[in-house]
Design a protein around this nucleic acid. Structure first.
Length: 448
RNA sequence: CGGGCUAUAGCGCAGUCUGGUAGCGCGUUCGACUGGGGGUCGAAAGGUCGUGAGUUCGAAUCUCGCUAGCCCGACCA
């Protein structure tokens, strides 16, 4: 965590919205100086945006490893040979970016990694004793969408967590599927999101056992139909033993019992059985999908292990993705107002903003410096607006970039020994001594 | 990939119809005043007008090509 003084930071905020941005998250990411478009569907991540991206990535890592999944890193560029072996080189179509190297070898910028991971697996694992195994990575992908739009929500280059499980039996693989569902639910919850697992279609990855996770937001690309009961469910802080199949399965059952479908799989008759006051039609943003596809890749690519009986059997596989860069946009879609972004504490780029209302006034400057040091020592990672600007400009910037807590320090309050702590979400303020304000923020972030 | 539209300073736009050598607001820099929700006044910097060709004495403006981007649709972990 690197605390910052705004005069030493790089935060190119815009007062007006660039013409190309249509939806809230895209507009706000540009205005808040989080991203800059490099070309269609391809973005540079400026410091503030990069910080949020890294926080989201960190949460994904923590929750995957908590579920027993192992991180590695595969390359962005892949050889076409592996894709010819799986049969997807021709199937994938124009969405896959194809490149030739200097020796005229066919390469591609990976849109996903089933082939590569299967190749790694088959060359190193030969026995059922080494299973179960789930490997994942967080890496940039490229899909040459015909019409990228909505900023990072539907870019061509995007950061994605993709994980792959290798199991001996279908039952083991379904447990991996369940582990992923539960770890995903917790991941989204930590980001302050309400993401609902919904039965989905397989798409080009294939498989008939699949759920996608949708964040509810009015600007979502997909129409969704669900039983309101599903939005009341929370995992909270409960301890989860990912090795306990029954416990993990019970959570999956709880979350998948209420009706929840995207329009592609919507069943009006089944929906009609949901009590009318709980039936909700809305829109959602897809932020993840999990698949069980059995031996779809292991068979053609000969990823086999020797089982207890000494027979060579193809491994049971699944793949599981979280759209890390898309989540930045999705969180903003789900959490903003007309003044700007409202970051949930779990992903905020800075824990709190310090607004100095009278830059250059010795007492006010000293009070701000004191808060800055104390918050930094407490691990709050503050952003100190030390510009020589008027109050209105500083408040507008803080509201725009959406830090969840703001400490306002001015001569008027200091005369009474107080600073003001304001919630970005509710707009409510409290007058506190600087010490009490630090203690309050420390408590708020204690379990982040 | 079909249909529509756009490209002029960091951002938002005017100027194009009717050709005459670049303009406004915001932002930036400097100075002064100011100081609890984008303040006021003054001064300044910043643009090969997306790109290539053509027409013309002269092109941001007219013609043709190209490129990039946006919107609607189809497509889409």
């Amino acid at each position: 965590m690197i605390p910052m003084r705004l005069t030493r930071y790089f935060l190119p905020v815009l007062r007006e919205t660039p013409a190309e941005a249509q939806i809230a998250s895209h507009r706000l990411m540009l205005r808040a100086g989080m991203i800059r478009q490099a070309s269609a569907g391809i973005y540079s991540w400026l410091p503030l945006g990069f910080k949020v991206l890294r926080r989201i990535e960190q949460i994904v890592h923590e929750e995957q490893q908590r579920a027993g999944h192992i991180p590695l890193l595969m390359p962005t560029l892949q050889s076409a040979d592996l894709w010819r072996e799986s049969g997807r080189y021709d199937d994938y179509g124009a969405e896959m970016l194809r490149i030739k190297d200097r020796h005229q070898r066919d390469m591609l910028y990976g849109p996903t990694n089933e082939e590569l991971i299967t190749d790694i697996f088959r060359s190193s694992v030969g026995s059922y004793k080494e299973l179960p195994l789930t490997l994942y990575h967080i890496q940039w992908k490229f899909r040459d969408e015909t019409r990228p739009r909505f900023g990072v929500m539907r870019g061509r280059e995007f950061l994605m967590k993709d994980g792959y499980n290798f199991d001996l039996t279908v039952e083991d693989a379904l447990h991996a599927y369940n582990r992923h569902m539960v770890s995903y639910i917790r991941t989204y919850e930590r980001m302050g999101l309400k993401a609902i697992p919904m039965r989905a279609d397989g798409g080009p990855i294939g498989g008939d056992h699949t759920h996608e996770f949708l964040v509810l937001a009015p600007t979502g690309e997909s129409a969704v139909f669900y039983d309101r009961a599903v939005t009341d469910l929370t995992l909270g802080d409960r301890a989860i033993d990912y090795a306990d199949r029954a416990a993990v399965s019970a959570i999956v059952d709880t979350w998948t019992a209420p009706y929840a479908r995207t329009d592609e799989r919507h069943d009006p008759d089944a929906f009609a059985e949901v009590p009318e006051d709980r039936r909700v039609e809305g829109r959602g943003i897809e932020v993840g999908q999990i698949f069980f596809f059995g031996t779809k890749y292991s068979e053609p690519m000969k990823a086999v292990v020797v089982n207890e009986a000494g027979e060579r059997v193809p491994v049971q596989m699944g793949s599981h993705g979280i759209g890390v860069s898309r989540l930045v946009g999705a969180i903003i879609e789900a959490s903003h107002d007309d003044k700007g972004i409202i970051w949930p504490e779990g992903v905020t780029p800075f824990g709190a903003g310090i607004v100095n209302l009278r830059q250059g006034d010795a007492a006010t400057d000293a009070a701000c410096e004191g808060l800055y040091s104390a918050l930094t020592a407490a691990g709050i990672d503050p952003l100190y607006d030390d510009r020589d600007e008027r109050a209105g400009a500083k408040f507008a910037t803080m509201d725009l970039i959406g830090l969840p807590w703001r400490l306002t320090v001015g001569p008027r309050g200091l005369a009474a020994g107080k600073v003001e702590l304001t919630s970005r979400r509710t707009g409510e303020s409290e007058e506190l001594t600087p010490e009490a304000a630090v203690a309050r923020l420390r408590a708020i972030y204690a379990d982040r």
